[in-house]
Computed example of a mutant assay.
Amino acid sequence: MKRVTLGGSDIEVSRICLGTMTFGNQTDEDQAHRQMDMALEAGMTFMDCAEMYPVNPVRAETIGLSEEVIGRWLARTGNRDRVEIATKITGPSQILRDGKPFDGDTIRQTIDASLRRLQTDRIDLYQLHWPVRGSYAFRQNWNFDPSGQDKARTLDHMADVLEALAEGVRAGKLRGVGLSNESAWGLTRWCDVADRTGGPRMAAIQNEYSPLYRMYDTDLAEAAVNEDVTLLSYSPLAAGLLTGKYADGAMPEGSRAAVDKATGGQGNLGGRKTKRGLKAAAAYGALAADHGWDVVHMVIAWQLTRPFKVVPIIGATTTDQLAHLIEGLDRDLPEDLIRGIDRLHRSHGLPY
């Protein structure tokens, strides 16, 4: 598999990343370890986690379990030097730290906690899961209200956090740092403050990106190109909506939507499974079929054609799903299919 460098850092990773947010919940430890074996066999050395994982649902008693699953795999296999590990500190959440925003002191503590769970001496990419000032991610864009933000307080917070991150880099605990669920304004300010204080520059930004959710394409893409920051795109398959498995009201047993509904959620894939979303997903599925492509392979290959640096994060509940994803990772998308995706985007822009 081809390899890429994250932003302006010296961190080289596989051009596809394995997501691990179901490890320890929907994906039991044996399957999780097999998935990491499979990924490594395919040349996929980059793996992404977070302190709050596993998800669907997030529970206080399972916080950190996905990191622990990865840590036991690293300890058992001795593969630490063969892979790149990314993880994240959770933003304000009632599940962790009583909803209090993180600061530099929190960062110092959570880095060490993640290192213990991962059973490693270093984290290749340490990310801020979402901003303490709020985010429009996860369908919050429909009523996003930044009017209560305080620029001076935000910049002071950034300087404090970057100081702690710089300490982690100097100590060899972190190789690089990144953002997640950030805005164009936030990305540029993090870079500005890093330049002013001598702190580490952001190498990556992990935001949602798929044919059904292309908010990154304009201001964020411009900011990332000019600041040399790589997109780590999560939910490239729109949480499974683009696979077609939810068509015609279907709710497959064990699917993300079914598990969410069974545990008290709405089963709507975080607001993605709407009438317009299902219609758009069906259109992309038909386009792929017309060109002789599996829609899953088409969507991942399309991401790699974008005019900015991007590393798609692929996640799978089962090893069979991961094997299917891996089958299509080395295919290049033909120009006529790329144009077809562009045409559908104009017809189905932001369908959820």
Rank of each mutant, 00 (worst) to 15 (best):
K309L: 09
M21V: 02
N25M: 12
R97W: 15
I313K: 01
V299C: 11
G264F: 06
S114C: 15
P200D: 06
S9I: 08
R15L: 00
L128H: 10
E12I: 06
Y209Q: 07
G292P: 10
I338F: 07
T77D: 08
A86T: 13
Y216K: 01
D332F: 01
Y213A: 11
H33I: 01
Q119V: 05
L128E: 05
G240S: 10
G244V: 08
L179F: 11
G285D: 12
T27S: 11
L165M: 14
H291T: 03
Y234H: 14
F138H: 11
V58F: 13
D145H: 00
P211G: 00
A203W: 02
P312R: 02
R122E: 07
S255E: 03
R256D: 07
Q94Y: 00
R256M: 10
M36D: 05
L337M: 14
K88G: 08
P211S: 01
T62S: 14
S180Y: 01
R331H: 10
C49E: 04
L155V: 13
G176P: 06
D124E: 11
D10W: 00
P307G: 07
W130M: 06
Q109M: 12
P92K: 07
A194E: 04
E51Y: 02
R97S: 10
Y246Q: 03
K273C: 09
D10L: 03
N143D: 15
A159V: 10
A323W: 01
T90A: 12
A238T: 06
R272T: 03
V83W: 08
R214C: 00
T154S: 10
A283T: 08
L125W: 04
A171G: 13
R256Y: 06
L155H: 13
V229C: 08
V310A: 03
L333P: 02
D217H: 14
